[in-house]
Design a protein around this nucleic acid. Sequence first.
DNA 1: TGCCATACGGATACGTCATCCGTTTGCGAT
DNA 2: ATCGCAAACGGATGACGTATCCGTATGGCA
Lengths: 192, 192
Amino acid sequence: MKSQTSLSDDLRADAARNRARVLEVARERLAAGDAELPMNTIARDAGVGVGTVYRHFPSREALLESLAMGGFERLVVEARKAADDDNPGAGLERLLRYGVRSQIEDVGLAAVLRSSGSARAETSRLRGDLLEAVGRLLERAREAGAIRPGIGADDIRRLSCGIVYAVRVGDGDLDEIERYADVLVDGIRPRS
Amino acid sequence: MKSQTSLSDDLRADAARNRARVLEVARERLAAGDAELPMNTIARDAGVGVGTVYRHFPSREALLESLAMGGFERLVVEARKAADDDNPGAGLERLLRYGVRSQIEDVGLAAVLRSSGSARAETSRLRGDLLEAVGRLLERAREAGAIRPGIGADDIRRLSCGIVYAVRVGDGDLDEIERYADVLVDGIRPRS
DNA sequence: TGCCATACGGATACGTCATCCGTTTGCGAT
DNA sequence: ATCGCAAACGGATGACGTATCCGTATGGCA
Protein backbone atom coordinates (compact mmCIF):
# COMPACT_ATOMS: atom_id res chain seq x y z
CA MET A 1 0.00 0.00 0.00
CA LYS A 2 1.44 3.27 -1.12
CA SER A 3 1.46 6.31 1.10
CA GLN A 4 -1.43 8.60 0.37
CA THR A 5 0.74 11.65 0.54
CA SER A 6 3.90 10.77 -1.30
CA LEU A 7 2.88 12.16 -4.67
CA SER A 8 6.35 11.23 -5.84
CA ASP A 9 4.80 8.71 -8.18
CA ASP A 10 4.88 9.91 -11.76
CA LEU A 11 7.72 12.25 -10.90
CA ARG A 12 11.03 12.15 -12.63
CA ALA A 13 13.91 11.12 -10.41
CA ASP A 14 15.43 14.59 -10.15
CA ALA A 15 12.03 16.13 -9.51
CA ALA A 16 11.29 13.73 -6.68
CA ARG A 17 14.72 14.43 -5.17
CA ASN A 18 14.30 18.18 -5.32
CA ARG A 19 10.81 18.03 -3.93
CA ALA A 20 12.03 16.00 -0.98
CA ARG A 21 14.93 18.39 -0.39
CA VAL A 22 12.63 21.41 -0.35
CA LEU A 23 10.28 19.74 2.09
CA GLU A 24 13.16 18.75 4.32
CA VAL A 25 14.64 22.24 4.40
CA ALA A 26 11.24 23.80 5.02
CA ARG A 27 10.58 21.41 7.87
CA GLU A 28 13.92 22.24 9.48
CA ARG A 29 13.40 25.97 9.14
CA LEU A 30 9.93 25.72 10.58
CA ALA A 31 11.14 23.65 13.50
CA ALA A 32 13.90 26.20 14.05
CA GLY A 33 11.23 28.82 14.55
CA ASP A 34 11.38 30.65 11.24
CA ALA A 35 7.71 31.34 10.74
CA GLU A 36 8.34 33.61 7.76
CA LEU A 37 9.77 30.86 5.62
CA PRO A 38 10.80 32.95 2.59
CA MET A 39 10.58 30.87 -0.54
CA ASN A 40 13.81 32.14 -2.05
CA THR A 41 15.88 31.24 0.99
CA ILE A 42 14.34 27.79 1.02
CA ALA A 43 15.42 27.46 -2.59
CA ARG A 44 18.94 28.53 -1.72
CA ASP A 45 19.23 26.16 1.24
CA ALA A 46 17.81 23.30 -0.76
CA GLY A 47 20.26 23.97 -3.54
CA VAL A 48 17.60 24.51 -6.19
CA GLY A 49 16.25 27.51 -8.08
CA VAL A 50 13.23 29.46 -6.91
CA GLY A 51 11.33 28.26 -9.94
CA THR A 52 11.73 24.69 -8.81
CA VAL A 53 10.27 25.47 -5.41
CA TYR A 54 7.30 27.21 -6.98
CA ARG A 55 6.72 24.41 -9.45
CA HIS A 56 6.36 21.90 -6.65
CA PHE A 57 4.51 24.24 -4.32
CA PRO A 58 2.60 27.06 -6.03
CA SER A 59 2.47 29.07 -2.83
CA ARG A 60 3.77 29.03 0.71
CA GLU A 61 0.31 27.90 1.70
CA ALA A 62 0.68 24.82 -0.46
CA LEU A 63 4.09 24.10 1.00
CA LEU A 64 2.82 24.36 4.55
CA GLU A 65 -0.08 22.11 3.70
CA SER A 66 2.22 19.47 2.32
CA LEU A 67 4.31 19.62 5.48
CA ALA A 68 1.21 19.29 7.61
CA MET A 69 -0.35 16.33 5.83
CA GLY A 70 1.04 13.72 8.21
CA GLY A 71 -0.11 15.51 11.31
CA PHE A 72 -3.48 16.19 9.74
CA GLU A 73 -4.01 12.52 8.94
CA ARG A 74 -3.11 11.56 12.49
CA LEU A 75 -5.57 14.13 13.77
CA VAL A 76 -8.36 12.65 11.67
CA VAL A 77 -7.51 9.22 13.05
CA GLU A 78 -7.77 10.58 16.58
CA ALA A 79 -11.07 12.26 15.78
CA ARG A 80 -12.52 9.01 14.52
CA LYS A 81 -11.29 7.15 17.56
CA ALA A 82 -12.92 9.79 19.75
CA ALA A 83 -16.16 9.59 17.80
CA ASP A 84 -16.26 5.86 18.49
CA ASP A 85 -15.35 6.18 22.15
CA ASP A 86 -17.78 4.62 24.63
CA ASN A 87 -17.59 7.85 26.57
CA PRO A 88 -18.07 10.70 24.10
CA GLY A 89 -17.35 13.36 26.71
CA ALA A 90 -13.99 11.81 27.50
CA GLY A 91 -13.32 11.29 23.83
CA LEU A 92 -14.00 14.92 23.07
CA GLU A 93 -11.72 16.12 25.83
CA ARG A 94 -8.97 13.80 24.65
CA LEU A 95 -9.37 14.98 21.08
CA LEU A 96 -9.31 18.64 22.06
CA ARG A 97 -6.11 18.20 24.03
CA TYR A 98 -4.56 16.21 21.24
CA GLY A 99 -5.59 18.82 18.68
CA VAL A 100 -4.19 21.84 20.44
CA ARG A 101 -0.99 20.04 21.38
CA SER A 102 -0.45 19.02 17.77
CA GLN A 103 -0.90 22.57 16.61
CA ILE A 104 1.60 23.85 19.15
CA GLU A 105 4.16 21.33 18.00
CA ASP A 106 3.47 21.81 14.30
CA VAL A 107 3.09 25.35 13.06
CA GLY A 108 2.21 24.09 9.61
CA LEU A 109 -0.69 22.07 10.94
CA ALA A 110 -1.92 25.09 12.86
CA ALA A 111 -1.80 27.16 9.67
CA VAL A 112 -3.77 24.59 7.72
CA LEU A 113 -6.39 24.14 10.41
CA ARG A 114 -7.06 27.82 10.73
CA SER A 115 -7.56 28.48 7.04
CA SER A 116 -10.87 27.54 5.53
CA GLY A 117 -9.60 27.32 1.98
CA SER A 118 -6.84 25.04 0.79
CA ALA A 119 -4.36 24.79 -2.02
CA ARG A 120 -4.42 21.00 -2.23
CA ALA A 121 -7.43 18.77 -2.86
CA GLU A 122 -6.09 16.30 -0.31
CA THR A 123 -6.38 18.96 2.36
CA SER A 124 -10.00 19.68 1.55
CA ARG A 125 -10.79 16.01 1.82
CA LEU A 126 -9.08 15.71 5.20
CA ARG A 127 -10.84 18.81 6.44
CA GLY A 128 -14.14 17.30 5.47
CA ASP A 129 -13.27 14.02 7.16
CA LEU A 130 -12.28 15.83 10.31
CA LEU A 131 -15.40 17.92 10.52
CA GLU A 132 -17.54 14.87 9.84
CA ALA A 133 -15.95 12.88 12.65
CA VAL A 134 -16.09 15.78 15.08
CA GLY A 135 -19.71 16.39 14.15
CA ARG A 136 -20.54 12.79 14.94
CA LEU A 137 -18.63 13.04 18.20
CA LEU A 138 -20.42 16.22 19.21
CA GLU A 139 -23.80 14.73 18.53
CA ARG A 140 -23.07 11.83 20.85
CA ALA A 141 -21.54 14.13 23.45
CA ARG A 142 -24.63 16.32 23.39
CA GLU A 143 -26.90 13.32 23.90
CA ALA A 144 -24.75 12.27 26.83
CA GLY A 145 -25.04 15.74 28.30
CA ALA A 146 -21.29 16.24 28.13
CA ILE A 147 -21.41 19.39 26.08
CA ARG A 148 -23.71 22.39 25.79
CA PRO A 149 -26.02 22.66 22.80
CA GLY A 150 -25.26 25.09 20.03
CA ILE A 151 -21.64 24.12 19.53
CA GLY A 152 -20.84 22.67 16.13
CA ALA A 153 -17.83 20.98 14.64
CA ASP A 154 -16.55 24.18 13.11
CA ASP A 155 -16.84 25.96 16.44
CA ILE A 156 -14.55 23.31 17.87
CA ARG A 157 -12.07 23.92 15.10
CA ARG A 158 -12.13 27.67 15.55
CA LEU A 159 -11.97 27.60 19.32
CA SER A 160 -9.04 25.20 19.19
CA CYS A 161 -7.23 27.58 16.88
CA GLY A 162 -8.03 30.39 19.28
CA ILE A 163 -6.58 28.53 22.24
CA VAL A 164 -3.44 27.75 20.28
CA TYR A 165 -3.24 31.39 19.36
CA ALA A 166 -3.60 32.43 22.99
CA VAL A 167 -0.64 30.24 23.85
CA ARG A 168 1.48 31.81 21.14
CA VAL A 169 0.48 35.34 22.13
CA GLY A 170 3.00 35.54 24.85
CA ASP A 171 6.62 35.15 25.57
CA GLY A 172 6.79 31.65 24.25
CA ASP A 173 5.83 29.55 27.24
CA LEU A 174 4.30 26.81 25.17
CA ASP A 175 3.67 24.80 28.32
CA GLU A 176 0.64 26.96 29.00
CA ILE A 177 -1.16 24.85 26.46
CA GLU A 178 -2.48 22.40 29.06
CA ARG A 179 -3.84 25.17 31.27
CA TYR A 180 -5.48 26.90 28.37
CA ALA A 181 -6.87 23.63 27.09
CA ASP A 182 -8.48 23.22 30.52
CA VAL A 183 -10.33 26.47 29.97
CA LEU A 184 -11.61 25.35 26.59
CA VAL A 185 -12.60 21.91 27.83
CA ASP A 186 -14.53 23.34 30.76
CA GLY A 187 -15.93 26.19 28.70
CA ILE A 188 -17.84 23.94 26.34
CA ARG A 189 -19.44 21.88 29.11
CA PRO A 190 -23.12 22.44 29.77
CA ARG A 191 -23.78 25.50 31.91
CA SER A 192 -24.56 24.55 35.48
CA MET B 1 -7.89 69.76 30.48
CA LYS B 2 -6.09 68.69 27.36
CA SER B 3 -6.60 65.30 25.84
CA GLN B 4 -3.91 62.88 26.87
CA THR B 5 -3.54 61.61 23.37
CA SER B 6 -3.58 64.64 21.16
CA LEU B 7 0.16 65.06 20.91
CA SER B 8 -0.56 67.87 18.49
CA ASP B 9 0.87 70.31 21.00
CA ASP B 10 4.35 71.45 19.96
CA LEU B 11 3.61 70.49 16.38
CA ARG B 12 3.79 72.95 13.57
CA ALA B 13 0.44 73.67 11.92
CA ASP B 14 1.17 71.70 8.76
CA ALA B 15 2.55 68.80 10.77
CA ALA B 16 -0.55 68.60 12.92
CA ARG B 17 -2.76 68.75 9.84
CA ASN B 18 -0.88 65.98 8.07
CA ARG B 19 -0.81 63.81 11.14
CA ALA B 20 -4.55 64.12 11.49
CA ARG B 21 -5.08 63.34 7.82
CA VAL B 22 -2.99 60.22 8.02
CA LEU B 23 -4.85 59.02 11.09
CA GLU B 24 -8.17 59.73 9.44
CA VAL B 25 -7.30 57.84 6.27
CA ALA B 26 -5.90 54.92 8.24
CA ARG B 27 -9.02 54.74 10.35
CA GLU B 28 -11.23 54.71 7.27
CA ARG B 29 -9.19 52.03 5.56
CA LEU B 30 -9.20 49.89 8.67
CA ALA B 31 -12.94 50.27 9.08
CA ALA B 32 -13.33 49.35 5.41
CA GLY B 33 -11.66 46.06 6.15
CA ASP B 34 -8.20 46.67 4.75
CA ALA B 35 -6.14 44.86 7.34
CA GLU B 36 -2.93 45.18 5.32
CA LEU B 37 -2.84 48.94 5.52
CA PRO B 38 0.16 49.58 3.25
CA MET B 39 1.96 52.71 4.36
CA ASN B 40 2.51 54.04 0.85
CA THR B 41 -1.15 53.87 -0.09
CA ILE B 42 -2.03 55.65 3.14
CA ALA B 43 0.41 58.34 2.16
CA ARG B 44 -1.15 58.64 -1.29
CA ASP B 45 -4.70 58.79 0.04
CA ALA B 46 -3.75 61.32 2.66
CA GLY B 47 -2.04 63.47 0.06
CA VAL B 48 1.35 63.41 1.73
CA GLY B 49 4.69 61.76 1.02
CA VAL B 50 5.65 58.42 2.50
CA GLY B 51 8.34 60.12 4.51
CA THR B 52 5.73 62.19 6.27
CA VAL B 53 3.80 59.13 7.30
CA TYR B 54 6.92 57.49 8.66
CA ARG B 55 7.97 60.61 10.52
CA HIS B 56 4.74 60.64 12.45
CA PHE B 57 4.46 56.90 12.81
CA PRO B 58 7.79 55.05 12.66
CA SER B 59 6.05 51.77 11.84
CA ARG B 60 2.66 50.38 11.07
CA GLU B 61 2.65 49.12 14.63
CA ALA B 62 2.97 52.69 15.90
CA LEU B 63 0.19 53.84 13.61
CA LEU B 64 -2.15 51.11 14.79
CA GLU B 65 -1.31 51.93 18.38
CA SER B 66 -2.17 55.57 17.85
CA LEU B 67 -5.47 54.58 16.32
CA ALA B 68 -6.20 52.28 19.21
CA MET B 69 -5.43 54.69 22.02
CA GLY B 70 -9.01 55.77 22.56
CA GLY B 71 -10.36 52.26 22.75
CA PHE B 72 -7.51 51.22 24.98
CA GLU B 73 -8.21 54.02 27.43
CA ARG B 74 -11.88 53.07 27.54
CA LEU B 75 -10.89 49.48 28.20
CA VAL B 76 -8.76 50.52 31.15
CA VAL B 77 -11.67 52.53 32.52
CA GLU B 78 -13.90 49.45 32.25
CA ALA B 79 -11.27 47.31 33.94
CA ARG B 80 -11.06 49.69 36.87
CA LYS B 81 -14.82 49.80 37.16
CA ALA B 82 -14.88 46.01 37.19
CA ALA B 83 -12.14 45.87 39.79
CA ASP B 84 -14.26 48.05 42.06
CA ASP B 85 -17.48 46.16 41.43
CA ASP B 86 -19.24 44.81 44.50
CA ASN B 87 -19.53 41.50 42.69
CA PRO B 88 -16.09 40.71 41.27
CA GLY B 89 -17.37 37.67 39.39
CA ALA B 90 -19.96 39.74 37.57
CA GLY B 91 -17.41 42.47 37.01
CA LEU B 92 -14.99 40.03 35.45
CA GLU B 93 -17.62 38.63 33.13
CA ARG B 94 -18.69 42.09 32.09
CA LEU B 95 -15.09 43.12 31.46
CA LEU B 96 -14.36 40.02 29.40
CA ARG B 97 -17.36 40.58 27.20
CA TYR B 98 -16.51 44.23 26.81
CA GLY B 99 -12.91 43.41 25.98
CA VAL B 100 -13.60 40.87 23.26
CA ARG B 101 -16.34 42.97 21.73
CA SER B 102 -14.03 45.98 21.57
CA GLN B 103 -11.40 43.94 19.82
CA ILE B 104 -13.87 42.68 17.27
CA GLU B 105 -14.98 46.20 16.51
CA ASP B 106 -11.49 47.66 16.48
CA VAL B 107 -8.81 45.71 14.68
CA GLY B 108 -6.18 48.16 15.84
CA LEU B 109 -7.04 47.59 19.47
CA ALA B 110 -6.84 43.84 18.93
CA ALA B 111 -3.39 44.25 17.40
CA VAL B 112 -2.16 46.31 20.31
CA LEU B 113 -3.56 43.98 22.94
CA ARG B 114 -1.98 40.92 21.44
CA SER B 115 1.52 42.34 21.17
CA SER B 116 3.61 42.41 24.30
CA GLY B 117 5.96 45.13 23.12
CA SER B 118 4.90 48.59 22.06
CA ALA B 119 6.16 51.43 19.94
CA ARG B 120 4.73 54.19 22.10
CA ALA B 121 5.42 54.85 25.77
CA GLU B 122 1.76 55.71 26.28
CA THR B 123 0.83 52.20 25.22
CA SER B 124 3.17 50.59 27.71
CA ARG B 125 1.66 52.68 30.46
CA LEU B 126 -1.87 51.71 29.49
CA ARG B 127 -0.91 48.07 29.27
CA GLY B 128 0.52 48.27 32.77
CA ASP B 129 -2.61 49.99 34.04
CA LEU B 130 -4.81 47.38 32.45
CA LEU B 131 -2.90 44.43 33.85
CA GLU B 132 -2.83 46.03 37.28
CA ALA B 133 -6.59 46.54 37.33
CA VAL B 134 -7.27 43.06 36.00
CA GLY B 135 -4.89 41.60 38.56
CA ARG B 136 -6.76 43.34 41.33
CA LEU B 137 -10.06 42.14 39.91
CA LEU B 138 -8.84 38.56 39.64
CA GLU B 139 -7.64 38.53 43.21
CA ARG B 140 -11.05 39.59 44.44
CA ALA B 141 -12.78 37.15 42.11
CA ARG B 142 -10.63 34.31 43.41
CA GLU B 143 -11.47 35.18 47.00
CA ALA B 144 -15.14 35.19 46.06
CA GLY B 145 -14.75 31.78 44.45
CA ALA B 146 -15.82 33.13 41.09
CA ILE B 147 -12.73 32.00 39.23
CA ARG B 148 -10.35 29.11 39.40
CA PRO B 149 -6.90 29.61 40.91
CA GLY B 150 -3.88 29.78 38.65
CA ILE B 151 -5.25 32.29 36.21
CA GLY B 152 -3.39 35.58 36.08
CA ALA B 153 -4.04 38.92 34.44
CA ASP B 154 -1.89 38.08 31.45
CA ASP B 155 -3.75 34.81 30.97
CA ILE B 156 -6.93 36.85 30.70
CA ARG B 157 -5.32 39.07 28.10
CA ARG B 158 -4.06 36.14 26.04
CA LEU B 159 -7.26 34.12 26.29
CA SER B 160 -9.28 37.13 25.22
CA CYS B 161 -7.06 37.54 22.20
CA GLY B 162 -7.53 33.86 21.48
CA ILE B 163 -11.29 34.12 21.58
CA VAL B 164 -11.23 37.12 19.29
CA TYR B 165 -8.97 35.17 16.98
CA ALA B 166 -11.38 32.24 16.99
CA VAL B 167 -14.13 34.55 15.87
CA ARG B 168 -12.03 35.90 13.03
CA VAL B 169 -10.97 32.42 11.93
CA GLY B 170 -14.09 31.82 9.97
CA ASP B 171 -16.23 33.25 7.29
CA GLY B 172 -16.70 36.54 9.00
CA ASP B 173 -19.68 35.92 11.25
CA LEU B 174 -18.56 38.37 13.86
CA ASP B 175 -21.75 37.74 15.80
CA GLU B 176 -20.25 34.53 17.10
CA ILE B 177 -18.38 36.66 19.58
CA GLU B 178 -21.06 36.34 22.25
CA ARG B 179 -21.20 32.56 22.00
CA TYR B 180 -17.45 32.26 22.12
CA ALA B 181 -17.26 34.69 25.00
CA ASP B 182 -19.64 32.36 26.86
CA VAL B 183 -17.10 29.58 26.48
CA LEU B 184 -14.33 31.75 27.88
CA VAL B 185 -16.44 33.04 30.75
CA ASP B 186 -17.49 29.54 31.76
CA GLY B 187 -14.05 28.10 31.13
CA ILE B 188 -12.35 30.19 33.77
CA ARG B 189 -14.90 29.39 36.48
CA PRO B 190 -13.79 27.05 39.26
CA ARG B 191 -14.00 23.40 38.26
CA SER B 192 -17.00 21.71 39.73
C1' DT C 1 22.07 6.28 -28.96
C1' DG C 2 18.92 9.84 -29.84
C1' DC C 3 14.79 12.22 -28.91
C1' DC C 4 11.76 15.14 -26.37
C1' DA C 5 8.73 15.81 -22.61
C1' DT C 6 9.78 17.06 -18.19
C1' DA C 7 12.15 19.70 -15.01
C1' DC C 8 15.60 23.09 -13.89
C1' DG C 9 17.43 27.77 -12.58
C1' DG C 10 17.79 32.35 -12.17
C1' DA C 11 16.83 36.81 -14.51
C1' DT C 12 12.99 39.63 -14.23
C1' DA C 13 8.86 42.39 -12.99
C1' DC C 14 6.41 43.88 -9.29
C1' DG C 15 4.92 45.46 -4.63
C1' DT C 16 5.98 46.96 0.09
C1' DC C 17 8.91 48.71 3.79
C1' DA C 18 11.83 52.07 5.53
C1' DT C 19 15.46 55.59 4.96
C1' DC C 20 17.80 59.53 3.42
C1' DC C 21 18.47 64.06 1.87
C1' DG C 22 17.64 68.21 -1.01
C1' DT C 23 13.75 71.40 -0.90
C1' DT C 24 9.99 73.89 1.13
C1' DT C 25 7.53 76.23 4.77
C1' DG C 26 5.70 77.79 9.22
C1' DC C 27 6.59 81.06 12.52
C1' DG C 28 9.21 83.67 16.10
C1' DA C 29 12.45 87.41 16.04
C1' DT C 30 13.67 91.81 14.30
C1' DA D 1 6.73 93.43 6.64
C1' DT D 2 10.66 90.41 6.08
C1' DC D 3 14.14 87.48 7.42
C1' DG D 4 16.27 83.25 8.92
C1' DC D 5 16.25 78.84 10.40
C1' DA D 6 14.52 74.84 12.62
C1' DA D 7 10.95 71.86 11.47
C1' DA D 8 8.61 69.40 8.23
C1' DC D 9 7.93 67.81 3.57
C1' DG D 10 8.12 64.53 -0.41
C1' DG D 11 9.62 61.23 -3.20
C1' DA D 12 13.81 58.89 -5.06
C1' DT D 13 16.08 55.05 -3.47
C1' DG D 14 17.80 50.50 -1.67
C1' DA D 15 16.69 46.31 0.44
C1' DC D 16 13.81 42.43 0.47
C1' DG D 17 10.18 39.00 -0.72
C1' DT D 18 6.79 37.03 -4.10
C1' DA D 19 5.73 34.95 -8.26
C1' DT D 20 6.50 34.32 -13.31
C1' DC D 21 8.66 33.26 -17.55
C1' DC D 22 11.57 31.16 -20.74
C1' DG D 23 16.03 29.47 -22.55
C1' DT D 24 18.71 25.48 -21.06
C1' DA D 25 19.63 20.93 -19.23
C1' DT D 26 18.47 16.16 -18.45
C1' DG D 27 16.05 11.78 -17.23
C1' DG D 28 14.13 7.91 -19.32
C1' DC D 29 11.88 5.52 -23.15
C1' DA D 30 12.11 3.75 -28.02
